Simulated scan of single mutants.
Amino acid sequence: MLNAYFGPMPEAIYNTAVYFKNTYRDSWITNPMSVEMIKDVDKSDVVSASLIESPVLGSISPLMLSGGVKTLMLVKFDRTHVFNA
């Protein structure tokens, strides 16, 4: 279920890039839904949990994915927090 909140929410995570960097798991990257999200949003291909081929940046780590993909993965895999999208 998706809930939308408007206005300040102190318990929400606003810096999703930093949170993602410190919490993601390799299994998130290779999950079939994540592979699709990375392909659709970043137009990149997952080679392995630590290697993604980007048409713009070349070979990148998961930490170099777009903020949108990182936030989508956090929403999917971390159901205990609220993320600023």
Rank of each mutant, 00 (worst) to 15 (best):
L2R: 08
N3K: 14
A4S: 13
A4M: 13
A4N: 09
Y5C: 06
F6M: 10
G7Q: 08
G7Y: 12
P8F: 12
M9T: 10
M9Q: 14
M9E: 15
M9F: 15
P10K: 03
P10T: 04
P10S: 07
E11K: 12
A12E: 15
I13M: 13
I13N: 09
I13T: 15
I13V: 15
Y14T: 11
N15G: 10
N15A: 11
T16V: 11
T16A: 09
T16D: 06
A17Y: 11
V18A: 14
V18H: 13
V18S: 13
Y19M: 02
Y19S: 02
Y19G: 01
F20P: 00
F20D: 01
F20Y: 02
K21H: 14
N22H: 15
N22F: 12
N22S: 13
Y24N: 01
R25C: 03
S27P: 07
S27M: 11
S27Y: 13
W28Q: 06
I29S: 03
T30N: 04
T30A: 04
P32R: 12
P32Y: 05
P32I: 06
S34P: 03
S34Y: 01
V35Y: 00
V35K: 15
V35S: 06
E36Q: 05
E36S: 05
M37Q: 04
I38V: 08
I38L: 01
K39S: 14
D40Y: 11
D40H: 10
D40M: 09
D40Q: 12
V41G: 03
V41L: 12
V41D: 12
D42R: 00
K43D: 12
K43S: 12
S44G: 08
S44E: 12
S44V: 05
S44T: 05
S44C: 08
D45F: 07
D45H: 09
V47F: 12
S48M: 00
A49W: 08
I52D: 13
I52E: 11
E53Q: 14
E53T: 08
E53H: 15
E53C: 07
S54A: 10
S54W: 14
S54Q: 11
S54N: 14
S54R: 10
P55T: 07
P55V: 07
V56W: 11
L57E: 13
G58V: 01
S59K: 10
I60K: 11
S61V: 00
P62S: 05
P62M: 06
P62Y: 09
P62R: 10
M64W: 08
M64D: 09
L65N: 03
S66R: 02
S66I: 02
G67V: 04
V69Q: 04
V69W: 00
K70S: 04
K70G: 05
K70P: 10
T71P: 03
T71Y: 01
T71Q: 00
L72H: 01
L72D: 04
L72N: 05
M73P: 03
L74E: 04
L74M: 07
V75L: 13
V75G: 02
K76D: 05
K76F: 03
K76E: 08
K76N: 06
F77L: 00
F77D: 02
D78E: 14
T80Q: 13
T80G: 08
H81W: 02
V82F: 00
V82K: 00
F83C: 03
F83V: 01
F83I: 00
F83M: 01
F83Y: 14
F83S: 04
N84V: 02
A85Y: 14
A85K: 10
